[in-house]
Nucleic acid binder design. Sequence first.
DNA 1: AAAATACATATTGCATACAAATTGTAAATC
DNA 2: GATTTACAATTTGTATGCAATATGTATTTT
Lengths: 236, 236
Amino acid sequence: MPDTSKDRKTHLLDRLKRAILTQELRPGADLDEAQLCEDSGLSRTPLREVLRELAGLGYVELRANRGARVSEMSHTTLRDFFLAAPMVYGAILRLAALNATSAQIAALKAAQEEFREALRKGSTTDRTLANNRFHEITGEMAGNIYLLPSFHRLLIDHARISMTFYRPVTPEMAESVSEASQQHDAIIAAIEAGNEATAAQLAEDHWNLSRNQIESFVMPAGMDQPLGTLPRSTSA
Amino acid sequence: MPDTSKDRKTHLLDRLKRAILTQELRPGADLDEAQLCEDSGLSRTPLREVLRELAGLGYVELRANRGARVSEMSHTTLRDFFLAAPMVYGAILRLAALNATSAQIAALKAAQEEFREALRKGSTTDRTLANNRFHEITGEMAGNIYLLPSFHRLLIDHARISMTFYRPVTPEMAESVSEASQQHDAIIAAIEAGNEATAAQLAEDHWNLSRNQIESFVMPAGMDQPLGTLPRSTSA
DNA sequence: AAAATACATATTGCATACAAATTGTAAATC
DNA sequence: GATTTACAATTTGTATGCAATATGTATTTT
C-alpha cells in the first residue's frame, strides 16, 4: 500500500504527542522544522499544519517568527494543575458513569489490561502511556465537548509529571502504583454500574493518590548523609 | 504604515471570531477558502493557518478533504453546556478573585462600562460582544492554563446562544438583562475585594440568571393566538 | 424510467520557490 | 576594550503551481 501523506501526517502527530508525553521531548525544547521534515518525509506546509494542531491541543507553543517549542512546565503551571485537576477529573468520571457505551467500557477494560501489563514488565514510558490511554477513554465516555479541552490539557501534563514517578525507586512508590491500578478496576466497575456518585468519589481518591505521588517527588525526604561526607568521584 | 500580512491575519482572525460569536456566520455554515482569500487579501497558506487556529479554539471544525465549517450547536451540545458551565464559571471567578491584578480590574471596569453602553444604545451584537469581552477578562484574571481552554469554548457558545436573547423583546428580558449588568458590578466588587467565596456565589447567581434566559428562549410561553387566526400578509 | 457509471468541474492538499524577519558575527567607532 | 552597527547566514512566513480527492452531471445500461 502506498504510504500516503495523510498517514505520514497522523504518524508524525502521534509520534510527537508520544514524545512530548514521555518527556523524550522536554518542556521548552525547540522543534526544528527542517529536522522534522527530514524525519517525517513531509514538506513544510503539512508539517506546519501538524505543529498548529499540536499547539491547539496544548502540546506545543508557537512564537511568531520564532520556532515552535514544547509547552513549558513551571511551578506556576504545577500550582494551576493542582487547582484544576480534582474538579475536572471528578466531573469527567461522573459523566463517564452516566454516558459510557458498552463498546467504550470494553475499550477501557482493554486499556486497563495494557496498563497492568506495563506495570508488570513495561518501561516507565509504557506505564505512563498506558495510564494516559486509560484516562483518555474516560474522557471519551464523558463526551462533553466543553470539558474535554481542559481535560486533555490536564492529561498532557499529568503524563509528563508521571514520567518522574512511574519509575518505582522506592517500595512505597511501587505500592502506590499498584494501588492506582486497583483504583482503575474500581473505576471500571463504577462506570459499568452507572454509579455516578461512586465514580466521583473514586476520582477524588485516585487524584489524592496521584497528588501524594507528585508531592513526594516535588518534596522528597532529605538525604541521610550530609553532602560533604559522600564518597568523592575519582576524576579531578 | 504598510498593511503587513501579520496584521491581515489577525484582522481576519478577529473578524471571523466576531462573525461566529454573533451568529453572522451560523453554526454549520461552510467557509469558502477562495472567498476568504478574496476578502482578506491573504493567500491560501496563511488563510488555512488561520482556519486551523480557529479550529483549535473551537470556533470551526475541519473535515478532511472537505471545507471548514462553523462549529455546530445541537440539543446535545446545549445539554453539555448546561452541565459544564456552572462548574467552570464558578472556578474561574473564584480564581479571578484570588489572582486579579489592578490593571486587569481596570480593564474589567472598562469592559463593564462598554457593556452598559451597549445595553443603553447598542445593537444585539454590541451587547453580546461586550458581555463576551467582560467574561474573557475574568478568564485572564483567573489565568489557569488548564481551565481556560474549556472556559473559552463555553464562552463561544454562550455568546452564540445569547444572540437570541440579548434582543429584549419582552419586558422580563429587558429586566433580566439589566439585572445581569448589576451582577457584573457585584462581580467586579468581589474581585476587587479579593473575596473568593462571594465571587463564587455571584458566579452561581449569574449563571442561574443566564440559564433562565436560555430556558425561556428554548421553551418559550405558547402563543396567545392560534396560528390560523393571525393577520395574513398582503402578498400572494 | 431508475440506477449505475464514467467523466467534467471544483475544491482541497502538498511541494517548492521566493520574501521577510531574526540571529549571530565581524568590523568599525567611541 | 566595550559598545554599536552593518552584514551575512539561518530560519520563518507567504505565494503559487500542481496533484489528489470529492462532487455534480450527463450518458449509458437494464
